[in-house]
């Protein structure tokens, strides 16, 4: 924090006073809109989560921790959290691994890096609904690319309705998410690689380190900053994932792909259990805050 506040108002020079007032004037418009449309609803979320309310009644019935006690015994919530867990594990490791692979391949000397970067990042700028439509098409039981290819190489028995089969639906959604996201990891990792000291890599080569050793012991440690950042970012994204799941499967078949965000949406906006929905949204809030907190602590330790 570079803007250390001065000691006392009375001791300030007229210039410093004017600056301080101007400072508030600069911040106030943003602060007002942020306070009203962000901070206020945040506290209301906490309040709602302690009530039983259907969204229409004039009275919100205060139930204390009742919703949270109900959460603990809600098997659908635990199932959804389980899906989120699978989602954050696979959905974090794979795009970062792909991003690292592509980043290192280009960084260690490939032509056309701008062209590759342009293309890899392309899916990242697409809307979730467009991505969902594209991948619904790829998974289409009859015309979809996946089944066409499988049939083409004689593996007809593997062809199936990927999104309709509870066994494969979640993984199929994850593939979609990874497709839409590895370009983001790649771009961030490329930016991080710009700061990697290439002479250290060369020194390791002379010392006889093979490619893998150079990657693990020389390149990855120098990228640790960037890697923790993307990991935290991806984890938070995974805990809150909504769009792809909602458009592609609506959480189905059955509840096979229900994640906490789609479950919350359903409770709060489709089943009018606003209080319970708010409690569910608090679970997401907590997961995000804890992840951020761990990330900040890790960052502090790295900086020492």
């Amino acid at each position: 924090m570079t803007t250390a506040a001065p000691v006392r108002w009375g001791q300030l020079s007229p210039r410093a006073k004017r600056k301080a007032l101007a400072g508030w004037a600069f911040v106030v418009p943003a602060l007002l809109i942020y306070a009203f449309f962000f901070i206020q609803p945040f506290f209301y979320s906490i309040y709602y989560s302690l009530t039983d309310w259907n969204g229409a009644d004039p009275v919100k019935q205060f139930v204390g921790l009742g919703n949270y006690i109900k959460l603990a015994g809600d098997s659908l919530l635990w199932q959804a959290l389980g899906h989120n867990l699978i989602w954050v594990i696979i959905g974090t490791v794979s795009p970062i691994a792909i991003g690292l692979l592509l980043g290192v391949l280009i960084w260690t000397g490939a032509l056309g890096r701008v062209l590759f970067r342009t293309i890899y990042f392309l899916p990242v700028v697409l809307s979730e609904v467009v991505i969902a439509i594209i991948w619904n098409w790829i998974y289409h039981p009859l015309f979809g690319a996946v089944n066409q290819i499988l049939r083409g190489i004689g593996l007809d028995h593997l062809a199936r309705g990927w999104l309709g089969d509870p066994q494969t639906a979640l993984l199929a959604l994850l593939m979609t998410a990874i497709w839409s996201y590895y370009g983001f990891c790649f771009v961030i990792i490329m930016a991080g690689l710009q700061n990697v000291d290439i002479s250290l890599v060369e020194a390791a080569t002379i010392d006889g380190a093979n490619g893998w050793q150079r990657f693990i012991h020389v390149i990855v440690p120098q990228l640790s900053h960037v890697l923790t950042m993307i990991t935290a970012f991806t984890l938070i994204g995974g805990f809150n994932v909504f769009g792809i799941v909602f458009v592609m499967t609506q959480g189905g078949p059955g509840t096979a792909t229900q994640v906490i965000a789609t479950y919350t949406y359903r409770k709060a906006f489709q089943e009018s259990q606003v209080g319970y929905g708010a409690a569910l949204s608090m679970v997401m809030t907590l997961l995000s805050l804890v992840t951020s907190y761990i990330f900040i602590r890790l960052r502090e330790r790295q900086e020492q």
């Binding site: 924090m1 803007t3 250390a4 506040a5 001065p6 108002w9 410093a16 600056k19 301080a20 007032l21 101007a22 400072g23 508030w24 600069f26 911040v27 943003a30 602060l31 942020y34 962000f38 901070i39 609803p41 945040f42 209301y44 979320s45 938070i236 805990f239 809150n240 909504f242 965000a261 919350t264 709060a268 949204s281 608090m282 997401m284 809030t285 995000s288 805050l289 951020s292």
Partner: peptide, 25 residues
């Protein structure tokens, strides 16, 4: 511009980076 409370205001905005839209929707 240094002013009383600027650190607090900044932290308040930073907290918004950690809270997903789902928390307030």
């Amino acid at each position: 511009l240094r002013f009383h409370g600027s650190n607090f205001v900044f932290v308040l905005f930073l907290l918004g980076l950690m809270v997903p839209f789902q928390s307030i929707m």
